[in-house]
Simulated scan of single mutants.
Amino acid sequence: MFGLKGKITVMLLGMTALAACGGGGSGFGGGGGSGPGGIRDQQISQESRQRLIESGALPDPNHDSIFDLFDNNDDPNVTVEVNRYIWNATLEILDFMPIEAADPFSGVIVYGYGTPPGGGRAYRATVYVTDPALDARSLRVALQGRGGGAVSRETARAVEDAILTRARQLRIAEGNL
């Protein structure tokens, strides 16, 4: 339909129209362009620029790409949402089992098979700390014996009670009561 000259003409007209849209006219903001009194002519102090960057109004020059915005660079001591006393008590009480995986951010500890002191049967466990509160509702323990499926509810309850008792002892010993 169009020849080479026609396509070039259409592209030049489109680029000219786009260039005209971004000028320093007096649009809705009134004088917000690059002319006298415009935002680009005003010098922003370094403190103001830093406040604008922290509030998100200006892009952070330290970010290399858009994907850096999704990185969790917060202090892990602040962002962890599990109870540290329950977490540490779990590690102490179930220290006879090897740890296969642990994620303090989600509160999951997966143990391999281990035989408790004085016991004859090997167990493995998955512990889930669900809340930052030192509360029985914050702890879930799933035990499995080597020979078969899940163990009795009483055995799992005894392990939960031992972990919670030790967590309370750790909290009292630290003096945060």
Rank of each mutant, 00 (worst) to 15 (best):
K5G: 06
I8Q: 15
I8K: 15
T9I: 08
T9M: 11
V10M: 06
L12I: 11
L13Q: 12
G14Y: 04
T16M: 12
C21R: 14
G22T: 09
G24I: 07
S26W: 08
G27S: 11
G29N: 06
G31V: 14
S34D: 12
G35K: 10
G35Y: 05
P36D: 10
G38P: 11
R40Q: 10
D41K: 14
E47G: 11
S48D: 08
R49D: 02
Q50V: 00
G56M: 00
P59L: 09
P61L: 07
N62P: 00
D64M: 05
S65E: 01
S65H: 06
F67Y: 13
F70Y: 10
N72T: 13
N73W: 04
D74N: 14
N77W: 03
V78L: 11
V80T: 14
E81Q: 14
N83S: 09
R84I: 08
I86V: 12
A89T: 10
E92Y: 02
D103E: 08
S106W: 02
G107I: 05
V108Y: 11
I109R: 02
V110D: 06
P117T: 04
G119I: 04
G120P: 00
G120E: 11
R121Y: 04
Y123H: 09
A125C: 10
Y128I: 10
Y128V: 11
D131W: 04
D131C: 05
D135P: 01
S138P: 07
V141G: 07
L143E: 03
G145V: 07
A150P: 01
V151R: 07
S152R: 12
E154T: 13
D161E: 15
A162M: 08
I163W: 04
L164C: 03
I172V: 15
N176S: 05
N176R: 13
N176L: 13
